[in-house]
């Protein structure tokens, strides 16, 4: 119960931050990516603002044995670059550029522009489903096991 409250609070604070920052507006995000147009630098301030508390949080995390409301930390421990990471990020950037939407603002926008956001979110889930089907057919995590295609 305590964990679910934390999760809901974190999600709501995140969503509120997206709406306040202006990043819930796909046009502003595209404006940031549009370096040959009327460049909108707001996203840099959003990212900078978000990195400050998180930088502090990682310092605190290093001194904690366990999180406040859960028995242990469950954090990614993958290191090294691989083709999956780079290829996935490159693809994500294409989709991000096309519509000006990444997963967070898209889901938050379900409350602000339900029709458009729902179309994007459903398509996004379909893309995730395609990924799940493809990866469950081949050996799980096949790409991750291939030693650093992009080099270390």
């Amino acid at each position: 119960m305590k964990q679910l409250t934390f999760a809901l609070l974190a999600g709501a604070l995140f969503g509120a931050g997206l709406a306040l920052s202006g990043m819930s507006d796909p046009a502003k995000v595209r404006g940031f990516l549009d370096i040959f147009g009327t460049w909108n630098p707001t996203l840099m301030f959003v990212m900078g603002g978000a990195l400050i508390p998180m930088g502090l949080a990682w310092r605190i995390q290093a001194k904690l044995r366990a999180p406040l409301a859960a028995p242990r930390f469950s954090l990614p421990d993958t290191t090294g670059l691989d083709a999956r990471l780079i290829g996935g990020a490159a693809l994500f950037g294409v989709g991000w550029g096309i519509a000006g939407l990444c997963p967070g603002p898209a889901i938050a926008d379900l409350a602000l522009a339900p029709r458009e956001a729902a179309i994007f979110v459903l398509a996004m889930l379909a893309g995730m489903l395609v990924f799940k089907i493809i990866t469950s057919r081949s050996t799980p995590m096949e790409g991750a096991k291939t030693p650093g295609v992009m080099g270390k």
Binding site: A10, G11, G17, G22, F45
Partner: peptide, 17 residues
Amino acid sequence: GGLMIGCASALMLLGLG
């Protein structure tokens, strides 16, 4: 807004790990 997003992420990290 960015600070709020960072605090939300910090809550997730320090609260739920």
